Deep mutational scan, measured.
Amino acid sequence: KYKEAKESFQRFLENHEKMTSTTRYKKAEQMFGEMEVWNAISERDRLEIYEDVL
């Protein structure tokens, strides 16, 4: 289930129109921090996936 959450988060970042190569992690956290997809995984994993996607 956790792996699915990580994959969902990656797809979310890859497909969200507001995500560009210039979007900083903290800005994304402000935009999406309340969303379930954002909070479903640990911050360490979130940051790792974020850096992989951008």
Score class of each variant (00 low, 15 high):
Ser21Pro: 15
Tyr50Ala: 06
Phe12Ile: 03
Arg44Tyr: 13
His16Arg: 04
Glu29Cys: 07
Asp45Pro: 01
Ala40Ile: 02
Glu7Met: 12
Lys18Ala: 14
Arg24Gly: 15
Arg11Tyr: 09
Ser42Val: 06
Lys3Arg: 07
Lys18Met: 08
Phe32Gly: 07
Glu48Trp: 08
Met31Trp: 10
Ile41Ala: 07
Ser42Ile: 05
Glu4Val: 07
Leu13Pro: 04
Gln10Tyr: 01
Ala5Leu: 09
Gln30Trp: 04
Tyr50Thr: 10
Lys6Tyr: 03
Glu43Arg: 05
Leu13Asn: 06
Lys6Asp: 04
Asp52Gln: 15
Glu7Leu: 13
Ile41Asp: 09
Glu36Phe: 00
Ala5His: 09
Ile49Thr: 14
Gln30Asn: 01
Ala5Asn: 13
Val53Leu: 12
Trp38Thr: 09
Lys27Trp: 09
Glu7Asn: 09
Lys6Ala: 03
Lys27Ile: 05
Glu4Cys: 03
Ile49Asp: 07
Glu51His: 15
Arg11Gly: 07
Glu51Val: 04
Arg44Ala: 15
Glu51Gln: 15
Glu48Ala: 11
Glu29Val: 02
Gln30Phe: 03
Arg44Gln: 15
Ser21Gly: 13
Lys26Val: 13
Thr23Lys: 05
Asp45Phe: 00
Glu4Lys: 06
Arg46Ile: 02
Glu7Val: 13
Lys27Ala: 15
Val37Gly: 01
Phe12Lys: 03
Ala40Asp: 04
Ile49Leu: 05
Gln30Ala: 10
Glu7Thr: 08
Glu34Gly: 13
Leu54Ser: 03
Glu29Asp: 02
Glu34Val: 01
Ile49Pro: 11
Ile41Lys: 07
Glu51Phe: 06
Ile49His: 02
Glu34Pro: 04
Leu47Ala: 01
Phe32Cys: 07
Ile49Asn: 03
Met35Lys: 06
Ala28Cys: 13
Thr23Gly: 04
Thr23Met: 13
Arg44Val: 13
Gly33Cys: 01
Glu29Met: 02
Glu36Gln: 09
Glu48Thr: 13
Trp38Arg: 13
Lys18Asp: 14
Glu43Ala: 04
Lys26Cys: 15
Phe12Gly: 08
Gln30Pro: 01
Glu43Val: 04
Lys6Ile: 06
Arg11Met: 10
Glu36Met: 03
Phe12Glu: 08
Glu34Trp: 04
Lys27Ser: 14
Asp45Gln: 00
Thr20Val: 11
Trp38Asn: 11
Lys18Leu: 14
Met35Tyr: 10
Asp45Trp: 00
Ala40Thr: 05
Glu14Trp: 06
Arg44Ser: 14
Tyr2Gln: 09
Thr22Asp: 14
Lys18Phe: 10
Tyr25Val: 05
Arg46Trp: 00
Arg44Phe: 13
Gln10Asn: 07
Val53Trp: 14
